[in-house]
Simulated scan of single mutants.
Amino acid sequence: MEYSTYGRHIAVDVWGVDFDILNDAESLRHMMTEAADKCMAKVLSVRSESFDPNGCTIVLLLSESHLSIHTYPEKRFAAIDCYTCGQKADPQAAIDFLVEQLMPEKTYAKKLIRGIGEIEVVE
């Protein structure tokens, strides 16, 4: 089987998110797993770490690449990114779901198309 190098990588900063949401690693783990399901990605593993006094990092290793969140509850800020290879999994669906759940006051997003030297892709 031949694999494509094509991928989409979305990074989003969310501001103005409730402290308690950003400091609840267990709830965020579930939210992230659901986001991976929404974007049609296969979760291989989940790793999370809570920090003292607050904040957490959660990384989902996906068959298609990764989904991660790094939270700063004291700043009401989180940095989220999702990178998926191929055209089946849609990282935008994961990002949209997470933004909907987190209900930030502001978002700043960047989208990269990766591996396009191999094929011509129309978005």
Rank of each mutant, 00 (worst) to 15 (best):
residue 76 R to P: 04
residue 94 A to G: 03
residue 102 L to M: 14
residue 98 L to Q: 03
residue 113 I to S: 05
residue 77 F to Q: 15
residue 93 A to R: 09
residue 93 A to Q: 10
residue 80 I to P: 02
residue 104 P to A: 11
residue 75 K to L: 15
residue 115 G to W: 01
residue 71 T to D: 05
residue 98 L to P: 01
residue 81 D to T: 02
residue 109 A to D: 05
residue 113 I to G: 00
residue 96 D to P: 06
residue 91 P to W: 10
residue 76 R to Q: 14
residue 71 T to V: 00
residue 93 A to F: 00
residue 77 F to T: 12
residue 88 K to T: 04
residue 80 I to D: 10
residue 73 P to M: 12
residue 94 A to D: 03
residue 88 K to E: 11
residue 110 K to L: 07
residue 103 M to L: 13
residue 75 K to V: 02
residue 97 F to R: 14
residue 100 E to N: 09
residue 107 T to W: 08
residue 72 Y to D: 06
residue 78 A to C: 07
residue 83 Y to G: 04
residue 73 P to E: 13
residue 72 Y to E: 01
residue 72 Y to R: 13
residue 88 K to L: 09
residue 84 T to R: 06
residue 101 Q to Y: 12
residue 104 P to L: 13
residue 99 V to K: 14
residue 89 A to T: 06
residue 93 A to P: 01
residue 108 Y to K: 11
residue 86 G to Y: 04
residue 70 H to R: 01
residue 86 G to I: 11
residue 84 T to C: 11
residue 72 Y to W: 10
residue 93 A to T: 00
residue 79 A to I: 12
residue 103 M to I: 05
residue 114 R to A: 01
residue 111 K to Q: 07
residue 106 K to S: 09
residue 72 Y to M: 12
residue 90 D to Y: 05
residue 96 D to T: 03
residue 103 M to K: 11
residue 109 A to Q: 03
residue 95 I to K: 09
residue 86 G to V: 06
residue 82 C to Y: 02
residue 114 R to N: 07
residue 105 E to C: 08
residue 74 E to C: 05
residue 95 I to H: 04
residue 74 E to W: 00
residue 99 V to Y: 13
residue 74 E to L: 04
residue 84 T to S: 12
residue 83 Y to S: 08
residue 87 Q to F: 11
residue 95 I to S: 10
residue 72 Y to I: 03
residue 82 C to K: 07
residue 99 V to G: 11
residue 106 K to E: 05
residue 91 P to T: 08
residue 113 I to V: 12
residue 93 A to Y: 08
residue 105 E to S: 13
residue 71 T to R: 08
residue 85 C to W: 01
residue 82 C to H: 01
residue 104 P to H: 15
residue 70 H to W: 00
residue 107 T to D: 08
residue 78 A to H: 07
residue 92 Q to C: 12
residue 110 K to D: 02
residue 92 Q to S: 14
residue 80 I to F: 12
residue 103 M to R: 08
residue 100 E to F: 06
residue 74 E to T: 01
residue 77 F to H: 15
residue 109 A to M: 00
residue 79 A to E: 10
residue 81 D to K: 11
residue 71 T to M: 00
residue 83 Y to T: 02
residue 96 D to G: 02
residue 97 F to D: 13
residue 78 A to W: 06
residue 105 E to R: 12
residue 102 L to G: 06
residue 70 H to K: 09
residue 71 T to F: 02
residue 107 T to Y: 08
residue 98 L to D: 05
residue 80 I to G: 14
residue 114 R to L: 10
residue 97 F to W: 15
residue 112 L to F: 01
residue 99 V to H: 08
residue 81 D to H: 15
residue 83 Y to M: 11
residue 100 E to M: 01
residue 85 C to P: 05
residue 104 P to G: 02
residue 108 Y to S: 07
residue 86 G to Q: 11
residue 91 P to K: 11
residue 71 T to I: 07
residue 110 K to G: 03
residue 86 G to K: 07
residue 89 A to M: 13
residue 94 A to I: 04
residue 75 K to R: 15
residue 94 A to C: 01
residue 93 A to M: 08
residue 82 C to E: 04
